[in-house]
């Protein structure tokens, strides 16, 4: 069973090695002649203004939580669809109730204006 996942582990390993190798190679092979100007934070050639970290609008959070919720919904539909014929009407009705509740959630979100970016 586990040998079927060997390619996945190999890919993870190669990806990690490539990322680490790139960082190591650039720091080893790149020329380093630091001057005070070079060590300044770069912001399109002009002097930096304000803090480097800015607060994000709460609209991003609303979008993110909507994504998580409907992502989980999709994750539940996938195993149900794989066994759709064997589950029969009971499984169908169960999924219809599940989807109906989340459809109400979507309508609520819509009516509250959470899907609008400008408000």
């Amino acid at each position: 069973m586990l040998s079927a996942y060997l390619p996945v582990f190999l890919m993870l390993l190669v990806a990690t090695l490539v990322a680490l190798g790139m960082f190591t190679a650039t720091s080893l092979a790149g020329p380093k002649k630091p001057t005070p100007e070079k060590l300044l934070p770069y912001e399109s050639g002009s002097n930096t203004t304000g803090a480097s970290h800015l607060r994000q609008s709460v609209k991003f959070y609303l979008t993110a939580i909507s994504f998580v919720v409907f992502d989980i919904e999709a994750a539940f539909i996938y195993p149900w669809a794989a066994l759709f014929r064997d589950l029969g009407w009971v499984g169908f009705v169960a999924m219809v109730i599940f989807l109906a509740v989340l459809a109400i959630t979507l309508v609520y979100e819509w009516k509250k204006g959470a899907l609008e970016w400008e408000r």
């Binding site: 989340l102 109400i104 959630t105 979100e109």
Partner: peptide, 9 residues
């Protein structure tokens, strides 16, 4: 999941 959306809103 509905609770999560309502809470976020």
């Amino acid at each position: 999941l509905t609770t999560a959306i309502v809470g976020a809103l």
